[in-house]
């Protein structure tokens, strides 16, 4: 089975974001960028399937700016076999919408015919949580979202999902889209020899036009603002003072 893993280049998890003065978005110039943390978990899961003998080949795909090839090299260094980069913008501030990404991924999947797509449940930049579900819809495939456990059993996958009330286990027909949640696994770090080896792995570069996909955004950004800042309150000196404040001042006890 071939496993396809979409990966996104996003602002690093630890970087404090700043809204651009002109309100068009968040400033990404000269900011550390990394693979979306959920996508790392997806790559890791694909590698584990390969190590268990349940996957033969792992293809990583990224859609965005040319610099996303660094993200793909990371996936290759972790253990993906080859990569496809679809250069969809030359502006680092242009976010490609999940619907357009899903259409491009569908075109790649039509060519590659994977048995499973493992994707992060959401990207930590636009926080949309949509691409996997949209891709499943366009393909007419089953979806197992927010996975914290995945078992491949013949032509089905058993997916345990993180849901509001606890966990839900479902069985999905393969080929399927599985989007991964935090507790599925702990991604490995790429070793130096593997980083070196990854430089020699195949990385094909494409454009949306190669797939005949229109990626015109449906959403336009009217403005981007900083959230309302919450003011720091006071420090209390003791538990007694805290209880008194909550009772008398805040009125919440």
């Amino acid at each position: 089975m071939k496993v396809l893993v979409p990966v996104k280049r996003v602002i690093d998890y630890n970087v404090k974001v700043r809204v651009k003065a002109d309100g068009t978005g968040v400033d990404l110039a000269n900011v550390k960028m990394s693979m979306n943390p959920f996508d790392e978990i997806a790559v890791e899961e694909a590698i584990r399937l390969k190590e268990k003998g349940q996957a033969e080949e792992i293809v990583a795909v990224s859609i965005g700016v040319k610099q996303a090839q660094e993200t793909l090299r990371t996936a290759l260094a972790m253990g993906a076999d080859r990569a496809i980069l679809i250069v969809a913008s030359d502006d680092i501030h242009q976010d490609i919408e999940p619907l357009a990404v899903a259409k491009l991924l569908k075109a790649v999947i039509d060519e590659e015919q994977p048995g499973l797509v493992l994707a992060g449940k959401q990207a930590i930049d636009n926080d949309m949580n949509a691409t996997g579900q949209m891709l499943a819809a366009l393909l007419g495939w089953a979806q197992g979202t927010f996975a914290s456990k995945l078992d491949i059993e013949g032509d089905h996958a058993v997916v345990t999902r993180e849901v509001d009330g606890g966990l839900q286990t479902i069985k999905v027909k393969m080929p399927a889209i599985v989007t991964v949640d935090l507790r599925l696994n702990e991604p490995r770090y790429a070793s130096l020899p593997n980083i070196m080896k990854a430089k020699k792995k195949q990385l094909d570069e494409k454009t949306p036009a190669d797939y005949g996909v229109d990626i015109t955004p449906r959403l336009s950004v009217v403005k981007t603002v900083e959230p309302r800042e919450r003011q720091a309150g006071i420090k209390v000196g003791s538990v007694d003072e805290l209880i008194a404040k909550l009772k008398d001042e805040a009125g919440v006890l």
Partner: peptide, 21 residues
Amino acid sequence: TTDAKNVMPRVAALLDAMVIT
């Protein structure tokens, strides 16, 4: 909710619309 986060992007794609979450 997690239910709607699961379902609504699928609905949007089937209607060729970009979901707004």
